[in-house]
């Protein structure tokens, strides 16, 4: 396989990273809302949050992407396929991230919160200064896994016509008739990206040097 072909794959991988990073960031914001809903005292908000998580975790991302890809134009939103793709990915990862956040916030030992309460901190101060930073540390490994999951899942947006890494490999394989090398190379690029993300995650964890809880 020539360097030229490989370079085309690397170029396409930029879109893969961009789409995934965008989806994870937007998904994080949605996840905060969904998680707040699930932990709310309001029954409607709680039900809505749970339904959101259940639906987006309970259906294949491929089906979600196709549904959104056809749904948006049918309700009058003619958006580029990249936007449909990022919307689908963001909603899906939001469901997973919301569940991770809920687990993390729930896993903060209640004694640490009682200690904060006993010093006279308000509920908001306790959340911001104690519960949130500890939950963040607890959930960091799961959030990194979710980011890697999303990078891999981004390959599915090839079906709605976004020319990212997998679709580029597919197109090149069809025109050069060298599927073995092209798909192996694409796999290698995904692997390298994911290793980098995993290392970044480990580095971040090591910087939070306050050890076990």
């Amino acid at each position: 396989m020539s360097w030229k072909l490989f370079w085309l794959l690397v170029e396409a991988a930029r879109l893969t990273v961009l789409l995934s990073a965008g989806a994870i960031a937007i998904g994080f914001l949605i996840a905060c809302l969904v998680c707040a809903g699930m932990l709310s005292h309001n029954r409607v908000a709680r039900g809505a949050g749970r339904l959101f998580v259940s639906f987006f975790r309970g259906t294949p991302l491929l089906v979600q992407l196709l549904l959104i890809y056809y749904l948006l134009p049918s309700i009058g939103l003619d958006v580029p396929s990249e936007v449909a793709a990022i919307t689908g990915m963001a909603l899906c990862t939001a469901a997973y991230q919301a569940e991770i956040m809920r687990g993390g916030l729930g896993a903060v030992p209640s004694g640490l919160l009682e200690a904060a309460e006993m010093t006279g901190m308000s509920a908001a101060q306790t959340f911001r200064r104690i519960r949130l930073p500890i939950a963040f540390k607890l959930t960091l490994p799961a959030l990194v896994s979710e980011a890697i999951m999303m990078l891999k899942s981004s390959s599915l947006v090839s079906v709605v016509g976004v020319i990212e890494l997998t679709r580029m490999a597919q197109d090149l394989a069809a025109s050069t008739y060298r599927p073995l090398e092209l798909y192996a190379a694409a796999g290698l690029i995904y692997l390298v990206i994911n290793i980098v993300v995993a290392l970044l995650g480990t580095g971040l964890e090591a910087r939070l040097r306050w050890g076990r809880i």
Partner: peptide, 21 residues
């Protein structure tokens, strides 16, 4: 390697690349 690459790419590799080996 399997956990670090997308399932779709693995499927393509096996289905379209397999005949070449």
């Amino acid at each position: 390697v399997i956990r670090g690459t997308p399932f779709l790419v693995q499927v393509f590799l096996l289905y379209y690349g397999g005949p070449f080996i």
